[in-house]
Computed example of a mutant assay.
Amino acid sequence: MPQPGLSIGYLAERTGLAVSAIRYYETQGLLTPWRNAGGQRRFERADIRRLSFILIAQKFGFTLPEIRDQLATLPGKRTPTKADWQKLSTAFRGHLDARIAQLETLRDRLDGCIGCGCLSLDSCKLYNPQDAAAALGQGPRYVMGDDAADLGIDPGELRADSD
């Protein structure tokens, strides 16, 4: 008679993950297997979908804490229903939309000023004079969503003055 729950080996086979990766996700709080009478980990069938979600979210650049926060919205005491997954999907869509917007900004500004403070391009003198973007915080401020206008800098006005 087969034992209830899925073994970690079966889960690894179904998802293509190494057993060690599944154990790691467990230590990170992304999965909560139970133990059978023999002390072996057992997983629910829904954990296949959870692991698939983890893999997809990681490919999109989400961190394990971000993924854990999303998975925490699913019920822990029962198998998530389609409605549960739709609710997670709707919430996750906002995160994806923000990530897409950030990637589009990076794509569009990568050959110009990204507000990093390097001041190595001529356009940086216009969009980030004297590293003004540093007042907004660390990193590539304009790619992270800030704008020169947040500093009261009008690139058009600066460009006209530089002619």
Rank of each mutant, 00 (worst) to 15 (best):
A12Y: 00
Y10M: 05
L151V: 04
Y24D: 09
R41I: 07
Q3P: 01
I48L: 09
R50C: 05
A18R: 09
T27S: 15
R99Y: 10
S89E: 15
M1F: 06
P140H: 12
A101V: 08
G39A: 10
L31F: 11
A148Q: 12
A18W: 01
P4V: 03
F92K: 09
G76H: 13
A57T: 05
R35M: 03
F92M: 14
R23W: 02
G115R: 08
L17Y: 00
L17N: 04
A149T: 05
Q28N: 05
D84L: 02
L119Q: 14
L31Q: 03
A21L: 14
L64W: 09
R141C: 15
Q130E: 14
Y25P: 02
L158V: 13
K77C: 08
F60L: 14
D47H: 05
Q3I: 05
A98H: 07
W85D: 02
G139T: 11
Q130M: 05
I54P: 00
L88R: 07
P4R: 05
Q40M: 03
D97F: 08
T15E: 01
G145M: 12
R50Y: 02
C118H: 14
Q102L: 14
I153K: 08
G152R: 10
E157H: 12
C113S: 11
A72Q: 11
I22V: 14
S20P: 00
S162L: 15
A134P: 00
V19D: 01
Q138R: 15
G38K: 06
E66N: 07
R49D: 06
S20Q: 10
D84M: 06
D161I: 06
N36L: 05
L11D: 05
I114E: 00
E157G: 12
Q102Y: 00
L126V: 15
L126S: 11
L110N: 06
T32L: 11
L30R: 11
S162E: 15
I100T: 12
A148E: 12
G16M: 00
T73L: 09
A72V: 00
I22C: 02
D108Y: 00
A160F: 10
E26G: 08
C113T: 14
P155A: 07
D131A: 15
P75L: 08
Y25T: 08
L74C: 14
W85V: 04
I8T: 08
E157N: 13
A72M: 02
L151K: 15
L31G: 09
T90G: 02
A160T: 15
R68E: 09
T32V: 10
T105D: 02
L55K: 11
L31K: 06
A148K: 10
E26C: 10
Y10L: 06
L151D: 03
G117W: 12
Q70Y: 02
Y25D: 01
A98C: 04
S7F: 00
R68Y: 02
D146L: 04
E104M: 05
T90C: 03
L121C: 03
E13G: 07
T15S: 02
G137A: 07
Q86G: 04
Q28A: 13
